[in-house]
Structures are given as structure tokens and as C-alpha cells.
């Protein structure tokens, strides 16, 4: 905080006038209100300190606005997040298509088992079963990606709110109220280190018996 030169002098309204010239239009009203309250008298030390704080705050807001404009924050919502969401959707679509193709091949292999000897048929059956088990990855990755998309959308809302608060136009502001969240029991897949395994779940179920 810098020392305000107007303290204890009659220059205060003039200094305030200079401040008015430096700040955006919607802040002028605030400054004029302060000047009206002062009614042309000198500032006390406490009032001067307060005025200095207000000046610093105005400077911080102006600087933040300039930084937001410079960083192109609008692009985050207009381009980056929608693009990332589209890419994630494409991953889900492509993995689903690939998985369906693998499953179709497995079904064709299973249809051939009747033509094989018992041992070979069993070997083929075991291999196909392992492929079926592995293909369930598509469900898990799909759910994980859905969680990521939800996180991106939450970021999008926060960025829109921030832009609305600080942008010069203030036109992009949206409510910061979060949409109704998913039910508390819909957590999706847990990370491996945090997840309960089947044996843990079996033990938990058995504890009810």
C-alpha cells in the first residue's frame, strides 16, 4: 500500500478527481459517491488510508482484468474445453467400435468350436473368455471419461463465472451456482489404490449374514 498524499489537506477532492479519470466508468460512480460524502472537506488520516486502499483495490481489479483479457480466458470456454470434451467423446466412440469388432470376432471363433477336438475347443473357449473379460475395460474407461467430462464442465462454469466478474464488459457472467450434483452413491470407478476388490466386497456382504 502506498502513502496517500491527500491526508490532512484540502487536496483530497482533487486527488479523488484524478482517480476518477483513471478508473473505468462503472467505478466513477463509486468515487463520486465518496466525494459527495466528503463534501469538499479535508481527509482525515484514516479516510486517506481508506482511500489509498480503494485505489490499490481498483488498481488490482484493473490489472486482473487486463491479465484476463491478455490470457484469452474466453478461449477456454469457447474453444479449449469443448474441444477436449469432443476428443474424449471420440475416444469413447472409437473404443466402443473397436471392442464391438473384437467381440464379433470372438463370437465367430466360438461358433467354430464345434468343429474342433475337445482339448482344442476348451483352449479356444478359455482364450475367448479371457478376451471377453478384458473387453470390459471399455465400460470402465467410458465411466472414467464421463467423470473427466463432468470435471471439465465444472471448470467451464467456474471460468465463465470468473470472466463474468472481471471482464471489462462483464457480459459473460453466469451464475456460479452448481447444477444439482450426481447422487452421492454414483461415484463411478475408483482408482485401483482406493477401490475395494471382490474379496473385500464378499467379506463386507458376509458381515451382514
Amino acid at each position: 500500500m502506498h502513502e496517500h498524499p491527500a491526508a490532512g489537506t484540502s487536496e483530497a477532492p482533487g486527488r479523488l478527481g484524478a482517480l476518477v479519470l483513471d478508473i473505468p466508468q462503472h467505478d466513477i460512480a463509486v468515487a463520486e459517491r465518496v466525494r459527495a460524502i466528503l463534501g469538499g472537506r479535508s481527509l482525515s488520516v484514516a479516510e486517506a488510508a481508506l482511500l489509498t486502499e480503494i485505489e490499490d483495490l481498483a488498481a488490482t481489479v484493473a490489472s486482473t482484468r487486463a491479465e484476463i483479457v491478455a490470457m484469452g480466458a474466453d478461449d477456454i470456454n469457447a474453444s479449449h474445453i469443448p474441444s477436449a470434451t469432443d476428443e474424449l467423446d471420440a475416444i469413447v466412440t472409437h473404443t466402443a467400435t473397436a471392442t464391438d469388432s473384437i467381440l464379433e470376432s470372438c463370437e465367430q471363433l466360438e461358433a467354430m468350436m464345434g468343429r474342433l477336438g475337445r482339448e482344442d475347443a476348451q483352449t479356444l473357449q478359455d482364450a475367448v473368455t479371457r478376451i471377453y473379460e478384458a473387453c470390459s475395460f471399455q465400460d470402465i474407461t467410458g465411466q472414467r471419461i464421463t467423470k473427466i467430462v463432468a470435471a471439465l464442465q465444472a471448470i467451464e462454469r467456474k471460468v465463465a463465472h470468473m470472466i463474468g466478474l472481471f471482464s471489462p464488459s462483464g457480459a459473460n457472467g453466469r451464475t456460479s451456482r452448481e447444477p444439482a450434483g450426481p447422487a452421492s452413491l454414483l461415484n463411478g470407478p475408483q482408482l485401483p489404490d482406493a477401490a475395494m476388490g471382490q474379496s473385500d466386497i464378499d467379506a463386507l456382504l458376509a458381515s451382514f449374514d
Binding site: 461415484n187 475408483q190 475395494m196 456382504l205
Partner: peptide, 9 residues
């Protein structure tokens, strides 16, 4: 894929 204790309970 819901594997939290509260889900099982």
C-alpha cells in the same frame, strides 16, 4: 464399478 463401502451397504 461402484466399489465404495457405502454402495455395497
Amino acid at each position: 464399478a461402484e466399489s465404495k463401502t457405502e454402495n455395497v451397504v
